[in-house]
Design a protein around this nucleic acid. Structure first.
Length: 529
DNA sequence: CAGCCTCGCGCC
DNA sequence: AAAGGGCGCGAGGCTG
């Protein structure tokens, strides 16, 4: 059974409508007095709840109610609209209703908006539950005519919404004291009135001294001018470019840039803004990236530098279970292309490839494979690619076909059917076409990896729920998950991760010989390997 | 002043 | 010959 839900105000009644699988109503709309009644329906029927958007579930969680399964109207609409080749169309509920009624879709409300939907609903209807029911039925019709992959993708994307909201609610355990100590070690004591911490100030002084005049090391333009006066014409102030020149300012400047980055992006100001009650709570944006990868809002959650990961520590009596998928993208390529010998087993794929083709040089093997998937040809990649082309013709043909499709302006899709938006018009120049080719070449692999990860999350969540585990997902970053688990449940949680990885591979590719191993580590701190 | 762009760098 | 994919964020710096 499915149940469409308009959760209503936090403490007020919720409106629901029971639905058949195809979305047709089973009886009239009903009013539930409060969220406890929603929880009761969940316990008795465990339906697939149909939400207009993520904040519907956020409201349930705020009331202490969680559910097993969902259908997210906005996320599914985005998938279906793109699959129909309707790119750039809004896919909010109001827009979907407008499309159903043959009106021009209204723009989506601003991202992250939490206001009342009626504010943005320019259409004649203000009955959100009726809108949800109507759009859901239309989506189920479209999904029933689509591929099994699309149906799996729609379910997984919706499960992603549940995971995302639950992870934000749980928060990533973050020790302010550990983070602060780390900052003091690297930067010196926190300056009381803003300004540069002592070690940064000293490095800025050293840069000034090396140039013989004061400048702002944070200003690329000033740095370029200073080097030009010293006889070094640089294109940019990127660190790899600075490293190539011989000047006494280079060393302190590189040290300054590294610490300034830490101070600006993950320093005390970041701590004050983003960590509260021992938890960092970024907002996850499911499918926020064209490839289906997630984005986040707030605190740069997907770019937590290795230098501060020690601050992520389990609560007393708890453990972190950290697991990342090893060499996920080349394994995806092996499965997608049928070139199974590219990924023969569980062992490190680059090491294995290096042993067979690159005289044991792992770095070469890695560069070769990444170049194939990103479209890189410089830096010696060309020679390595020739080796791959000879040894793995099907895998190489797969990415090269995707690149050609992009260059010729054709659409490409992920394994399950996420559609890559076409190039914007006006980009027919040869250089732009090649750039487009690199984009689509990468899309087929990255988007398929993203949907594997999505299915993994959904499977892992269900395994933990059905086992009654107290372990909770607290972080997800493309191919990596972090669980927070009571110490005595950590090993079971780790086993769930391994199982979910196997299941995700099977759900995507059936009984492919390609493996997608995850090796969970049970640790106290996220910095421990 | 806000709003927007570029730069550079963090992560995958 | 040359040709590296995807993001978010803060600081600088320009525009209106």
């Amino acid at each position: 059974m499915r149940v469409a839900l308009d959760p209503g105000p936090l403490d007020g009644p919720a409106r629901v409508q029971r639905l058949a699988e195809d979305g047709s109503p089973l009886g009239p709309p009903e009013t539930l007095s409060d969220l406890a009644a929603v929880a009761c329906v969940e316990r008795e029927h465990a339906p697939r709840w149909v939400f207009a958007r993520a904040r519907g579930y956020r409201r349930l969680l705020a009331g202490g109610v969680d559910v097993a399964r969902a259908h997210d109207i906005e996320l599914v609409e985005g998938l279906l609209v793109a699959a129909d080749g309707q790119f750039g169309q809004p896919h909010g509920l109001a827009a979907a209703v407008a499309r159903l009624e043959g009106r021009t879709p209204v723009p989506d409300p601003p991202a992250g908006d939490d206001g009342p939907p009626a504010l943005f609903d320019a259409g004649p209807s203000t009955d959100e539950l009726a809108d949800i029911v109507a759009v859901h039925a239309a989506q189920q019709r479209r999904l029933s005519a689509a591929t099994p992959g699309m149906r799996l993708l729609a379910a997984a994307e919706s499960a992603g919404m549940l995971v995302a909201q639950e992870m934000t609610a749980a928060g990533l355990p973050w020790r302010i004291d550990v983070h602060d100590r780390l900052l003091v070690d690297l930067l010196g004591p926190k300056p009381l009135l803003g300004g540069r911490p002592p070690k940064l100030a000293a490095l800025a002084d050293a840069v000034n001294e090396a140039f013989g005049r004061p400048l702002n090391p944070d200003s690329p333009a000033e740095v370029l001018r200073a080097f030009a006066r010293a006889g070094h014409e640089l294109e940019t102030t990127r660190s790899w470019e600075l490293k190539r020149i011989d000047h006494p300012a280079v060393e302190p400047l590189l040290a300054y840039k590294e610490l300034a980055r830490l101070h600006a992006a993950h320093g005390w100001s970041w701590l004050r803004t983003w960590v509260a009650d021992g938890r960092f709570r970024p907002e996850y944006v499911v499918g926020g990236v064209v490839s289906g990868r997630w984005a986040t809002r707030g605190g740069g959650a997907l770019q937590i530098p290795k230098a501060v990961r020690a601050a992520v520590r389990a609560d007393p009596g708890w453990k972190l279970v950290a697991a990342d998928a090893a060499q996920l993208e080349p394994r995806m390529l092996a499965a997608l292309s049928g070139d199974h010998s590219l990924a023969p087993g569980d062992e490190d794929l680059y090491t294995a490839l290096a042993a067979r083709e690159f005289a044991g040089d792992r770095a070469k093997a890695k560069l070769a494979l990444l170049s194939a998937m990103y479209g890189q040809t410089s830096g010696g990649a060309g020679v390595l690619l020739a080796t791959l082309r000879k040894r793995f013709p099907a895998a190489m043909a797969y990415v090269e076909d995707a690149a050609r499709a992009g260059e010729e302006g054709r659409l490409v899709r992920s394994h399950l059917g996420r559609t890559c938006p076409p190039a914007r018009p006006g980009h027919e120049q040869p250089a732009a076409a090649r750039a487009r080719g690199r984009f689509t070449r990468n899309f087929v692999v990255q988007a398929t990896a993203a949907e594997w990860a999505l299915v993994l999350l959904a499977e892992l969540r269900m395994l933990l729920r059905s086992a009654g585990s107290r372990a909770v997902l607290v972080f997800f970053q493309h191919d990596e998950v972090l669980l927070h688990a009571p110490a005595e449940e950590a090993e079971a949680a780790a086993e769930a991760v391994r199982t979910a990885a196997v299941t995700a591979g099977r759900r995507l590719f059936g009984d492919t010989p390609v493996r997608f191993p995850m090796q969970p580590r049970i640790v106290e701190g996220y910095d421990e390997r």
